[in-house]
Design a protein around this nucleic acid. Sequence first.
RNA 1: GGGAGCAUAGCUCAGCUGGUUCAGAGCAUCUGCCUUACAAGCAGAGGGUCACAGGUUCGAAUCCUGUUGCUCCCACCA
Length: 907
Amino acid sequence: MEIPKTYDPSQVEDKWYKRWIDSGFFRSTPDDREPYTIVIPPPNVTGVLHMGHMLNNTIQDVLIRRARMRGYNACWVPGTDHASIATEAKVVAMLREKGINKKDLSRDEFLKYAWEWKEKYGGIILEQLKKLGASCDWERTRFTMEDDLSDAVISVFIDLYNKGNIYRGVRMVNWDPQGKTALSDEEVIYKEVQSKLYHVRYPIVDTKLAEQIKSSTSTWTFTENGWEVVIGGENFKGSEFITIATVRPETILGDTGVCVHPEDERYKHLKGCFAVIPMVNRPVPIVFDDYIEMEFGTGALKVTPAHDINDYNLGLKFGLEVIDTINDDGTMSPAAKFYIGEDRFIVRKKIAKDLEAAGQMVKVEDYKNKVGYSERTDAVIEPKLSMQWFLKMDQVAKPALDNVLNGNIKLIPDKFINIYRHWMENVHDWCISRQLWWGQRIPAWYGPNNECVVCKTADEAISLFAAKGISVNKNDIRQDEDVLDTWFSSWLWPISVFDGFKDPNNKDIKYYYPTNDLVTAPEILFFWVARMVIAGYEYMHEKPFTNVYLTGIVRDKLGRKMSKSLGNSPDPLDLIAKYGADGVRVGMLLSSPAGNDLLFDESLCEQGRNFANKIWNAFRLVKGWSVDASLTTPEVNSISIRWFEQRFNEQLSVINDHYAKYRMSDALMASYKLVWDDFCSWYLEMVKPAYNENGPAAIDAATYNATLRFFEQLLKVLHPWMPFISEELWHHLNERQQNDCIIVAEWPKEEASDKKVLTGFEFAAEVVAQVRNIRSSKGISPRESLSLFIKSSQKVDDHFNAVIAKLANLNKLATTEVKVENSFSFLVGQAECYVPVSGNVDVAAEKERIQKELEYNLGFRNSVQAKLANERFVANAKPEVVDNERKKLADAEAKILALEEQLQSLK
RNA sequence: GGGAGCAUAGCUCAGCUGGUUCAGAGCAUCUGCCUUACAAGCAGAGGGUCACAGGUUCGAAUCCUGUUGCUCCCACCA
């Protein structure tokens, strides 16, 4: 059989993925085994796979596959999220391209387009996940807007409303003028931008004049030192101004007050006075509040209650008028009286110019500030008063906080606990309404006079109204136009995917809930994780998951976030095509400790691919062996087999321990080294038959069988990381029954390892390395056979002598009582080793080398001696530590003695 | 403005409650090898005052304080 020299994943991956599916290996139904469950963080239904998904889902698949092998009933539930804002934006854009304006469509027409779009593009991402090898139970695929899940959302809303946790109210919300919807605080991204700070002076008038200005039209003119106003033919003059500083002059038209600090000497005398707002000529009160920073700007703040949350609060406090001057789409409203219908940013420039022309602009300075942007549309957020639905958080958040703090739910890494606590302790009410169509429509109904009832259907609404004494028919009532925040459906995900709302006592929810692990990005710790915990306790009285593994953000190697605009995000499918899914999986996980950002570089995938190839070639070697049943097992092989068994046991427990602590990269690296170093570089070289003129010699049956057994065990350890190549080789290694696949093979049992064998090997390995070092530094060919003599006062473990002889290519390995002349020497532990050479040894170079080693050991001995001479050390340190120091001293002294002897003999 | 975290080799990271020759791993680098499993490889080697300054201790990469630099989270500074 001719086996290609390199592993070709393209020949393998689709074949096995199909076989796994066809065999139902991903399928999970409740049985008597213990469940192990993960619900996928549902990606946006119209999204495509990016590197973040790759990392995330690779980790989930590793966890799921290992659990499956360990005998758990492993269930990974996949699905997608309807992502209302993002999807609606995409649909609107698609329609616009077709020349259709959303405004011209009815709600139903629009939704029809949206569903078509979803059917067409939805779930591409799930197909992509299959390429990665994701072993989800695809028969369980859910979608947050499918009927059952939507029903769950609606009934939860009604339930929370009836419990008094949901209320409706006018609040200052983050308004996205492009998406024309309110956003939650979490959906606003603040960016630092270069702005301008405009200093504008408002004339000061007293109460009497203010009254006159209010009651009739006034015409103002400004000079350098004062102002003049004509009211009804009467002329007034003044020289006093108050200068405010603002970055948003377009909101001046909505000003209803000016606020200064009560302790501010500059303004104390203005109590009871009014400032007159430019252009609209509205006198507004000057109020005093210690919210004001005296040092900032001029120390005077214009108050625009309709367009700034702080101003809104001040407005409430001082009873200021609210004038909403900006429309939903970010243009000026009629209430502004000027620039009506023009965009807020254009108006900003215009009004600045106009104020300048009028003589009210004092100065303009450059200024850096933070501006909120919509996460979804990137539009600048407009704080806006509007009627929204809210969920009260303080009560429901309590168990969600407690159960993380008491360790009932674990965050990995645990540094996120503090962040979580901080958020939960300062949680704000959650604005859950969105002014969109794509999503679950709010089940609230309004009567003729805006009376409101909350229930599922119009018929129920009619009877609820009737109960309130309001008699209506279907045509008199209308349903709320808004839909619910997407997170208001995804927070139910771990429950709703098992139909926990529809059928609370069904087998699935009872069996799979609570789930085990959740793997997600820290960015959505509050958006999603915290809220799932809340929903879990509210509706199941139980946590939704036990462990939350928080991945890092995938960045490029320069540390920049991957983004479309930077073009630094590779297409995961291209990577898979290039390096194989196994290679990419390994690449993703090689260096991504929980919570740490992953600086991704293609070379990581290359390393993964190389590893796959290494395994492939180990297989080629083993498969190429011909077995001769008549051969007895050579000594070198027996001890090698004995050693590898121990090494495997030892490393398996290391790997298991890493997994238990969710140290994925460490678990992978330990697996990697076990295969590459221990198995390939050492074990296979140890048992590999020598070759004669006819090619490689035959191998004995015991060695062959042991090697196959080891290989199988290693493939199992590799399977979670590299499902495809491990499955492929599993079947090449042995004839298998149809269903004997590694995906469902049993994870290796952890057994004790014999430390004596392991340390015996370590000694041998060190000797081999030293001989190789001599070859390398002295230019002796590996093919030239050497001899080696070991001199030691203590007994050295000689079990591995045959191994040493083979790997170091020795024709003789013996002990000696005396130093061997004309040889290179080295020390391993206390054993002096001599490699005699035919030519003359470079005495000077040897002396120098030995001298250096001697000096190091002398220094070391001195430091140990000093330690032991210190009475306080001997008195205070733990006895075993002191003993250890004594042993170190003895070792060092023996070494020094040996080195001195060697040096002596070279003279 | 408040809070949290980080700083160890060129890069990415380990280093558990202070104590094995503790200063590590992988990658990268350098040297020598196309040795019939693998050049996507083999063998060997060189890289670090553990950010800085103090302190606690018999003993500090590890604990404490301060400084510097970076990152993240929260928050309503015009």
